[in-house]
Amino acid sequence: MKRTNLSTLAVAGVLALGLSACSDSTTAEGGKPSGKASGDVTVGFSVYDMQYEFFQKMEKGTREAVEAKGWKFKLHDEKSDENEMVTGAQALLDQGVDVLIISPFKPDALGPIVAKAKQKNIPVIIDDIGGGGTPYDAIVISDNADGGKQAADYLAQQVAANGGKSKKVVSITCEPSAVYAARRNQAFDQQIKDKGFQVVTELSGNSKAEEAYKIMKDALAKDPDVVGVFACNDPMGVAAANAIKDAGKDPVKGIVTVGFNADPEAITAIGKGGLSATIAQDPAGMGAKTVELAAQALNGGKLTYDDESKREVFQKVTLVTKDNVAQFAG
């Protein structure tokens, strides 16, 4: 039994030796200079979660922009996990990428990643979600607050057009930890209150369609005279619209239903009159913008920002309704 203990130590020891023996070989390659000539540039892109169509589009936009420059592209999928995010993004840095583009699952977990990149002198461009107060080189961000505001304006206008009898609206939020997405509902709530409406139900559907469906059903039982609903993302917006339909009401003419993201399911629903509107972000365009910023950073030049002080580059959001939905189809 004594040998078990020894062998445990031996395993650890072998690993340790292996590591310390190798550690000399790498010191040479630290501190890569920036301002590389194009041709042998590798761009590392750490993406939030490839299971979502939004990020699939973002990845496509980024990859195509990288390939158009004749650069190499390395993808890492964070799979909606902060541990995977930190481990994988740091691994990209270890693999010697020349620039890191990242759409962080948890912006607050960017610290150790950005710190490592700074140490290696690798520029970091953040794509959406948030920067977590780190010294990144640039962040491309959708204007979430503006989206929430546009949703409120459109909702108020449509309620008036429908001849809505009450001023009661419902606001369905994403999971409580999604602080940046929460700005959509915060801006919506503020704007809709300014227009004289009252948010009678505000609950988190945890970004899940199943939960949003139940919340909407319950909200309708509580206030049958609700005239509008805004959901933080499209799966929840479309689920709310389905709940409204199942309660025997119309999710456009009876209760104005607005989602966020312009996912295919929302576009389909708007086309069929099953959803009033959604707010389109342009993930592919955001991806292309990050690559442009990466090129500027690699050339050692100055980056062009929309907001110099926060190193922010804005990507506009667009209201999608039945009038312009055709542009977003396909």
Partner: peptide, 23 residues
């Protein structure tokens, strides 16, 4: 969420997860 601000990058707390001893 609770988070560690970036200014704490040099803190001994960060070393718990980040430090290498003999590699």
């Amino acid at each position: 969420p609770k988070a560690l601000p970036y200014s704490e990058i040099g803190s001994p707390f960060v070393k718990i997860g980040g430090l290498n001893l003999a590699g």
